[in-house]
Design a protein around this nucleic acid. Structure first.
Length: 870
RNA sequence: GGACGAUUAGCUCAACUGGUAGAGCAACGGCCUUACAAGCCGUAGGUCGCAGGUUCGAUCCCUGCAUCGUCCACCA
């Protein structure tokens, strides 16, 4: 095969993906006898475009899926998209507006048609972007939350919960977005600190005088039903039961006593607006106060004389009018948090309206239990407490949305007042009175309602499918923490409720991606990095590997182009190491099994052993979701052990055809296993090289093996050789002795065990650091640079090579460093407390270390003396 | 207001249940050595945020503080 000197992922990534698809390698077989491993993708919104968060999310899932494929599991990874009610409706709304079409004119049916049209064109673009990253989803099983069978599942769940009394309809205070014209759940409101004003306003008492209340929303006075004071507040006690007159609109309202009022806050008098504030709503219920609306669903005031004004214009007008009437007290700037719609960012208005709710308490209890019992693990564990905290304080879930795009609530209203809830698409009669004039509820369901069914609705529920039988519960859910409550918690509740079993064994919560300064990435800030751009520039493999190696548990990921570029170099390294091996291969691929064990030299055995331990580390790390450790283990093994040492060590054998066959067989073997281990992280390049190596096979068939070889003795030996080479190189480096200069090296003592090892490997050593001779002696040469290992010293005569004073200074410094270490260890070993209480192994280790240090220091001192003699 | 996390080399991050700190990148010095200069070899860099405490011994455990970040709740 031909490989260019530099890797160019564009040359092969698309082809490789096509190759996988063509060979149906991502398809899950529900009839397989292999152990199942399954994941459902967190369905991206159809309005979404790929960002780094998605890239990280799917990379981690793909690593898990491909790893388990290699391990021989039957893997299922279901892809799909979410219809994303508000987000999508807004997008299409804006698109139509640009074309001069208003939603209202169009009407519901036509509008929904338009959304479907839009979805057909743009709705799966994000999935195509995922493909560019190499994800191994089973594309035949792609699902959409509004697919027919998924919608049927939604209906079934709704009807069943309703019949059980777990879904109810009630007039309640909800968060209302005046722009999206819909209710929002508590979770869908984003609070942000904003600068505003606290207005002190005076309400005249009927009997004369005033009460002064404080508010940040003066316009809501139009809907006031009372003024409340704390019953214990001596300042206002006399006012309780009196009447105040709301200025301008001249409504008479009572002064009431309620313990909710905090005497220390504001003026101690609280205006009570049951229709516009959640707390006031509760107070209103307690005192049976009337509820006045002051604005409509668009945030336009409906109370004369302010009617027709927008809420913020009305605020200004109210403030002006109060001031004119000399009823405005102090106005002070404050910072307070204001709720915003999580989709359109408009300011939320609390509003009383008739909505549908799910009674979640009993469901939540089960979901808590399941995690307590370990049926589902939430990892990293710190998130578990968040989950418990939220689940234990959960409030009923408002599931109705006043939108057009979404699952329309399967309820029909009859003139008789009865609501018929039915799975039947078009029930013709009221189930109570038999009347035929029934109309369907106009509200749709919260998007997360259908998402909550995702782990089983995507597998065919409510049918008892083979898929469900084999792959439910799913093995793991991989997601970021920001949808832990929105989604994970609700899947837990619904999974337990309708499948009688948790939806996943593990929940792995991964990091959030930030820019290099640690700030959240966003398009508006202009600090976002486009994953597709990165994939194009460096290859999808590089992006994936970067994300994986940064994905340490419990920590956000800071990313920048520069940090990604580092791993482009790694890709190039993999490429070139493979190229080197290819170049030296004969026509037939060597097979280590055809090589006599005896032909494997120590360095071959060394790399085979290192391979095994590296792959073991990778496997263990993946299983513990420590993706960064796994990636780092691969990086270090491949670059350091395999490229820097092993390939360098066997070059002489390859070039001189001395033990070449065994070297190449071992090299190919290691390369193959390493590529397989790398495959979950860098699927394209590993597959590409594999294909070329094997003549068109897929790496997925090779499977995951740790390697069959383990030679601890030989490995230790080569480790010592590496140490020796390191000492010589160090001396070369320190004195700028050219690598080309052939050196004579002396080592001592003659009888050291290492002497035999080094003698035996002289040729090997010479091949990587040129030495004319290695002499083991008992007396040191004069004027020599020295380097020390624990049990021997290396000397390189410096005559004509470097300055003696410099070497003396260097050795002195080295000596000082070692003595400092020695001092610490000795002190500890003299400490009676330490000797009495520390474990034997620690004491032994320290004793050994002390002896080593002493020897090393002695060696260096002797070397120094030798230098001093001249 | 409640809670959680982070703080380690210039940068980005490691260090299992306490045994005295490691890697990559950057920096510096030297190499175009026939896979790779997107490379090779080597060197230097840290009172582990601050202050106490427990312990023979603390980056690790406890307390307090500081800075940064996040979540939840409240906000008249």
């Amino acid at each position: 095969m031909e490989l260019s000197t530099r890797v160019n992922p564009k040359d092969y990534e698309d082809d490789i993906y096509a190759f996988w698809l063509k060979n149906n390698l991502f398809h899950a077989d529900e009839n397989s006898l292999a152990l199942p491993y399954s994941i459902v993708i967190p369905p991206p919104n159809i309005t979404g475009s790929l960002h780094l968060g998605h890239a990280l999310n799917v990379t981690l899932q793909d690593i898990l899926i491909r790893f388990h494929k290699l391990k021989g599991y039957e893997t299922l990874w279901i892809p799909g998209t979410d219809h994303a009610g508000i987000a999508t409706q807004n997008v299409v709304d804006r698109k139509l507006a640009k074309e001069g079409i208003s939603r209202a004119e169009l009407g519901r049916e036509k509008f929904v048609e338009e959304v479907w049209k839009w979805r057909g064109v743009s709705g799966s673009s994000i999935l195509n972007q995922l493909k560019r990253l190499g994800v191994s989803c089973d594309w035949e099983r792609e699902r959409f939350t509004m697919d027919g069978d998924l919608s049927a599942a939604v209906k079934k769940v709704f009807v069943s919960l309703y019949r059980e009394g777990l879904i109810y309809r009630s007039n309640y205070m909800v968060n209302w977005c005046v722009r999206c014209h819909t209710a929002l759940s508590d979770l869908e409101v984003d609070f942000e600190d904003e600068a505003g004003f606290m207005y002190n306003m005076r309400y005249p008492l009927k009997e004369g005088g005033f009460v002064e209340i404080a508010t940040t929303r003066p316009e809501t006075y139009l809907a006031d039903s009372a003024v409340a004071v704390n019953p214990a507040d001596t300042r206002y006690k006399r006012l309780i039961g009196k009447t105040v007159i709301l200025p301008i609109i001249n409504r008479e309202i009572p002064v009431i006593a309620d313990e909710y009022v905090d005497m220390a806050l504001g003026t101690g008098c609280l205006k009570v607006t049951p229709s516009a504030d959640p707390n006031d709503f509760v107070i209103g219920k307690r005192h049976a106060l009337p509820e006045f609306q002051c604005m409509d669903e668009s945030g336009v005031i409906v109370v004369s004389p302010f009617d027709g004004l927008d809420r913020f214009a009305a605020r200004k007008k109210v403030v002006d009018e109060f001031a004119r009437l000399e009823l405005m007290g102090e106005v002070s700037p404050i910072t307070h948090s204001v709720g915003h719609c999580y989709r359109c960012a408009g300011v939320i208005e609390p509003r009383i309206s008739l909505q549908w709710f799910v009674k979640v308490k009993s469901l939540a209890e089960k979901a808590v239990e399941a995690v307590e019992n370990g049926k589902t693990r939430i990892l990293p564990k710190v998130w578990e407490s968040n989950y418990f905290e939220w689940m234990r304080n959960i409030r009923d879930w408002c599931i109705s949305r006043q939108l057009w795009w979404g699952h329309r609530i399967p309820a029909w209203h009859c003139k008789c007042g009865h609501i018929t809830v039915s799975e039947d698409d078009t029930p013709s009669v009221c189930e109570k009175c038999g009347g035929t004039e029934i109309t369907q509820e106009t509200d749709v369901l919260d998007t997360w309602f259908s998402s909550a069914l995702w782990p089983f609705s995507t597998q065919g529920w409510p049918k008892e499918t083979g898929l469900l039988k084999k792959f439910y519960p799913t093995s793991v859910l991989v997601t970021a923490f920001d949808i832990l409550f929105f989604w994970v918690a609700r899947m837990m509740m619904f999974g337990l409720k309708f499948m009688g079993e948790v939806p996943f064994r593990d929940v792995y919560i991964h990091a959030l991606i930030r820019d290099e300064k640690g700030e959240k990435m966003s398009k508006t800030k202009g600090n976002s990095i486009d994953p597709l751009e990165m994939a194009d520039a460096y290859g999808a493999d590089v992006l994936r590997f970067s994300l994986a190696i940064f994905a340490a548990q419990g920590r956000d990921i800071r990313i920048s182009k520069a940090r990604i570029e580092i791993y482009r170099n790694f890709l190039n390294k993999i490429w070139n190491a493979s190229r080197f091996i290819f170049i030296n291969l004969d026509s037939e691929l060597p097979d280590i099994k055809k090589i006599e064990i005896a032909e494997l030299r120590d360095e071959d055995r060394w790399i085979l052993t290192k391979l095994k331990s590296a792959v073991n580390t990778v496997e263990g790390s993946i299983l513990n979701y420590c993706f960064n450790d796994a990636a780092a283990a691969l990086y270090n093994f491949f670059w350091n052990s395999f490229c820097d040492w092993y390939i360098e060590l066997i070059k002489v054998r390859i070039f001189k055809d001395d033990g070449k066959a065994a070297a190449l067989a071992a090299a190919v073997y290691v390369l193959r296993k390493a590529l397989a281990a790398m495959h979950p992280f860098m699927p394209f390049v590993s597959e590409h090289i594999w294909k070329n190596l094997t003549g068109g096979k897929t790496i997925l068939e090779e499977g995951w093996t740790v390697g069959d070889f383990d030679f601890p003795g030989e490995t230790a030996k080569i480790d010592r050789i590496i140490e020796f080479i390191g000492i010589v190189r160090n001396i070369r480096g320190e004195y700028n002795i050219s690598p080309a200069k052939v050196l004579a090296v002396y080592a001592t003592p003659k009888e050291a065990e290492i002497a035999h090892i080094i003698k035996e490997k002289e040729v090997l050593i010479n091949s990587v650091t040129r030495l004319s001779a290695i002499n083991f002696v008992d007396t040191f040469p004069d004027e020599a640079a020295a380097g020390a290992a624990a049990d021997y010293t290396v000397h390189v005569p410096l005559a004509g090579l470097a300055d003696i004073a410099g070497e003396r200074a260097r050795l002195t410094k080295e000596c000082e460093r070692l003595e400092k270490d020695l001092q610490a260890v000795s002190a500890r070993l003299k400490n009676e407390g330490f000797l009495a209480k520390a474990s034997h192994t620690i004491i032994e280790k320290d004793t050994l270390k002390k002896a080593e240090l002493e020897k090393q220091i002695l060696n260096i001192k002797t070397a120094l003396e030798a230098l001093a003699s001249k």
